[in-house]
Simulated scan of single mutants.
Amino acid sequence: MAKSGDPSDLTATLERQRAAFLRDGPPTLKRRRHDLLRLKDALLAHQDAFVAAINADFGHRAKQETLLLDLGSTINIIKYLHRNLRRWMRPERRSVAMVFFPGSNRVLYQPLGVVGVVSPWNYPVSLALAPLATALAAGNRVMLKPSELTPATTELLASTLAELFDESRSP
């Protein structure tokens, strides 16, 4: 996450992300799974802080709602991604037109490089981290822009993600 909304800072962050993706290439299955587990563990470790931050941003939100709809759903998505990632990364065979025999076709899934995630305010953790986890599982780097209407949660997301991922190296 870029530290400010200054366009030159965002452009510099994007260039660092692109350069790192081109330098390091797509992450391996092992790396992607490791990153997903680190993200899940960080959510579990900071769940009380996320509940407090969301409560501060909304004035009052039931702890159960935050645990179930923001944190629980995100953790379940991360588990689902982790469980299915090997199958999704596997090349898929495709049929070949008769004129191209004895050739063969297959689809190799490739990451885009750097993707942007802009999240809304109403469920600030799940609507920011579920797309982030999906992009990481796909092998991409992510620039995350949480809502400015949830400042406490945004700050906590920034500090938590800064602990996990360095924006100039592979996540």
Rank of each mutant, 00 (worst) to 15 (best):
K3H: 06
D6P: 00
P7V: 08
L10M: 08
L10T: 08
R16M: 11
R18K: 15
R18L: 14
A19M: 10
A19F: 10
A20N: 12
A20H: 05
D24M: 02
G25M: 04
G25C: 05
P27C: 01
T28C: 12
T28V: 06
R33A: 02
R33N: 10
H34S: 15
L39D: 00
D41M: 08
D41I: 00
D41N: 11
A42E: 15
A42Y: 05
A45G: 12
H46D: 08
A49Q: 14
F50I: 06
V51D: 10
A53C: 13
A56N: 12
A56C: 04
D57C: 14
F58D: 09
H60G: 08
Q64Y: 02
E65K: 00
T66K: 05
L67N: 09
L67V: 12
L69F: 05
D70N: 03
G72I: 09
S73Y: 11
S73A: 09
N76P: 02
Y80T: 11
H82W: 02
N84K: 14
R86M: 06
M89V: 10
P91D: 14
E92Y: 02
R93C: 01
S95K: 09
A97F: 06
A97K: 13
M98W: 15
F100K: 09
F101Y: 11
G103W: 10
S104K: 10
S104G: 13
Q110Y: 09
P111R: 03
V117K: 00
V118N: 01
V118E: 01
S119G: 14
P120T: 07
W121T: 11
W121F: 15
N122G: 12
N122E: 12
Y123L: 15
Y123Q: 07
A130F: 00
A130I: 15
P131I: 00
L132P: 04
A133T: 06
A133E: 03
T134E: 06
A135G: 01
A135D: 03
A135K: 00
L136P: 05
A137F: 05
A137L: 01
N140E: 04
V142D: 01
M143N: 07
M143H: 10
P146H: 07
S147Q: 04
T150V: 10
P151R: 01
A152P: 01
L157F: 10
A158S: 14
E163G: 11
E163Y: 07
D166E: 08
S168I: 06
S168Q: 11
S170M: 05
P171E: 00
